[in-house]
Write a protein that binds this DNA or RNA. Structure first.
Lengths: 270, 270
DNA sequence: AAGTGGTCTAGACCACTAT
DNA sequence: TAGTGGTCTAGACCACTTT
């Protein structure tokens, strides 16, 4: 694709050190590993438009020669860009620049976690009791209706502002010594941050938009039917059977998820 | 479950094929690369509970000896688990099993993309015209109010069912030859899938819960104030200035995002 | 001092793609 | 046949942590 996109002397002239936009060399005495430097250099060349979506990057052999690195180190730099979805490789053909697409984007739960990590956040346990499982909780936990399960209702407040309403059902396990710890702040934080030696092995999360129902609206100080975010979580124990199910509910305006596609404005080495 | 941590004869006996829970060897003639096999073996040992959250994995030196691989190959296997957030490494101390936490989860736009990729999905362009920028679009695009911009309104239907309402504003570029292509299906798909040689370099996405407004409710066949998902997208051109801004709106019940934390039920080699 | 992960080399062979 | 990425080896040196 397109002929003279390659900058003059980019690969032919090696010793000459052209003007301000010269291809940087690898600084062997830098704190930054060589593979990271090369990844940064290639990233910068893509951001500058020197390589555009669909263009082929220099081959690994060329990069080895150009930057004076071993093949493994060059491959590692390319792996970095591969992980960033900035390029893709085709065996036998080459390495190609990817276009920035929405599809590649992913939202993490940073805003959820920021709320929990905030020292101004208080967790108030509204209720803890053993109930007979029924309806949705029974179905999600895979137990027969009537089975005793532990139900916990919590409210997360930022200062005095209610932000998250949380309802959780858990298989009642008389032999489990950690149930008490799970009722308070620690138990909730563990859901996010994990705790060594205990806690679920795997889980499924589901995020959707809904409307505030009765108690949710009341607890969150909003009106019925107000837009809401719901995050459902289902965790499994070591026997691969459901251990706990629950949901976080927030007002729609209290929470949002952000992410980027493609490169950040000024990404590293350049 | 955690009885025989160091398995007898793990490296000494090579030909003998012990019972069902024997540590598998690396099959050198397999289509599966050695590093992937080792990652699968370690993953299976974690899933079995042989290593639990916080436990230290065998050192790289031990893994080299046990499985007969070179250090680089062992490191590569660990890098796989590192990328999965299944383990973390601490220089000078070792490699440790991570707990499955909500924090590590990320939602991708698979459900958005599935809708677009579905052959039953139709895209109907409701309107295309040049308007004077004002309010939110002008602010997001960083242009003075009154600047001419191209506005596009689309409706995505699954069969005859309206599913997504899309509004987009774009810097009007008379010299841009691809504007026409962007108006229809292709332009929208490009937002997700990218197209070689054109398209934005980077963008920002924002996902939030809201309520359907006037035309959104009408077009989606729902009532005002109905729970809604909104995905805002802002794309930048090569000059790092905003190029297009817009939002997808769906009814809350039409869209949801799912993900998992920790390992899948039966993850690979075991 | 011993052990750990982190980086890097300078080759090798392979499967696949293009010409 | 030549070139590409994919895998792998058998070492090396480093910074860091633990004993």
């Amino acid at each position: 694709m397109s002929a003279s996109r390659g900058r003059p002397g980019a690969s032919a002239v090696g010793a000459a050190l052209p003007a301000e936009d010269a291809a940087p060399r690898i600084a062997r005495d830098s704190f930054e590993p060589a593979y990271a430097q090369l990844a940064g250099i290639l990233r910068a060349r893509i951001v500058r438009g020197e390589f555009q979506a669909g263009d082929r990057l220099p081959t690994e052999t060329e990069l080895v020669a150009t930057y004076g690195l071993s093949p493994m180190t060059v491959r590692r730099a390319i792996k970095v860009l591969l992980d960033e979805r900035a390029v893709s490789t085709v065996p036998g053909r080459g390495t190609f620049v990817e276009a920035a697409t929405i599809q590649a984007a992913a939202f993490d739960l940073g805003s959820f976690h920021a709320l929990l990590a905030d020292p101004a956040t208080n967790i108030r346990v509204l209720e803890t009791r053993v109930v007979s499982a029924s309806g949705r909780p029974a179905a999600m936990l895979g137990v027969a209706p009537g089975t005793p399960v532990t139900m916990i209702r919590r409210l997360l407040l930022r200062g005095e502002e209610p932000r998250l309403y949380h309802r959780q059902w858990r298989i009642a396990d008389p032999g489990h010594p950690d149930v008490d710890a799970e009722l308070g702040v620690a138990g909730l934080r563990d859901l996010f941050e994990g705790r060594v030696g205990v806690g679920p092995k795997r889980g499924r999360l589901r995020l959707y938009a809904s409307a505030l129902r009765g108690e949710e609206a009341r607890r969150l100080g909003s009106e019925l039917g107000h837009p809401a975010f719901v995050l459902e979580h289902l965790f499994f124990g070591f026997d691969d059977r459901p251990l706990s199910w629950g949901l976080f509910v927030s007002r729609g305006e209290d929470l949002h998820f952000e992410t980027t596609v493609g490169f950040a404005p000024a990404p590293g080495a350049g």
